[in-house]
């Protein structure tokens, strides 16, 4: 069959019908893996040796597991693991399985982003805040977090983009997201116009990635108080 560039544009609206699934999956994974990652980072930075060792081991193991395999392990393994507890996961949606698998993996990655960010902020500012009477929580919220978000943003952006792309693997367990939709469209046409469809899909992912990158640089400016202001002329 002849290559038809026009078809690329025609198929985009059809693909976009499933844009929501991809975005929701990425956003929910980002949210839960940030929370999970914060917990892991807290364990890594804490005083308990056991917790620290556990969190480090978890991170090491998860980082060594290919995403696709982890997805399968969750999809086939979780129902078996929970069956003895009397929990039936067979009817859990594929979206949930994807969310769990990606959160498990991304939590490990996020924990490293959060830990390195926390450690990059000068301890002295904690002490200074203490001497003016601020509580650790106030210090965290008003001094450390705003600086931390800024420092972490480039890493966060990379993590988000990687996640968005890797989440396309979820079609392998039958989730119909953008990628799943593309597969469906192609098989409905008995394999015809596969190239055009994937090109259309590529364009969509490019656009999404570009938007994330823009968002991150916007946020960098918003959180970069005290960093973007360059030296002013010396006043007399």
């Amino acid at each position: 069959m002849e290559f038809t560039p026009l078809y690329i544009l025609q198929v985009i609206p059809e693909l976009l019908r499933r844009l929501g699934v991809t975005l929701w999956l990425a956003a929910a994974t980002m949210l839960f893996s940030t929370l999970f990652g914060a917990l892991l980072a807290w364990a890594k930075l804490g005083k308990s040796r056991v917790l620290r060792a556990l969190a480090n081991a978890y991170t090491a193991v998860l980082r060594c597991t290919p995403t696709l395999i982890l997805l399968f392990l969750c999809y086939y393994g979780l129902p078996k693991a929970f069956a003895p507890l009397g929990v039936d996961l067979n009817r859990m949606s594929r979206f949930c399985y994807s969310l769990i698998a990606f959160t498990l993996l991304n939590g490990a990655l996020m924990s490293e982003v959060i830990r390195s960010t926390y450690e990059s902020i000068d301890r002295g500012q904690f002490e200074a805040a203490a001497t003016v009477g601020m509580t650790p929580f106030q210090t965290l919220r008003r001094i450390i977090l705003p600086q931390g978000v800024y420092i972490a943003l480039p890493n966060l952006g990379t993590t988000m983009i990687t996640l968005l792309k890797e989440a396309s693997l979820a079609f392998t367990i039958g989730l119909v997201d953008l990628m799943g939709q593309a597969k469906l469209i192609i098989s409905l046409r008995y394999g015809a116009r596969a190239l055009e469809t994937y090109l259309a899909l590529t364009l969509i992912y490019w656009a999404l990635t570009f938007l994330i990158a823009r968002l991150v640089s916007r946020l960098e400016r918003a959180f970069g108080a005290g960093r973007f202001e360059r030296a002013r002329e010396a006043a007399p």
Binding site: G124, Q125, A128, I143, P146, Y150, A225, G226, R227
Partner: peptide
């Protein structure tokens, strides 16, 4: 080394 809050004026 002063330990000023670097995100504050």
């Amino acid at each position: 080394n002063h330990n000023l809050f670097s995100n504050k004026t």
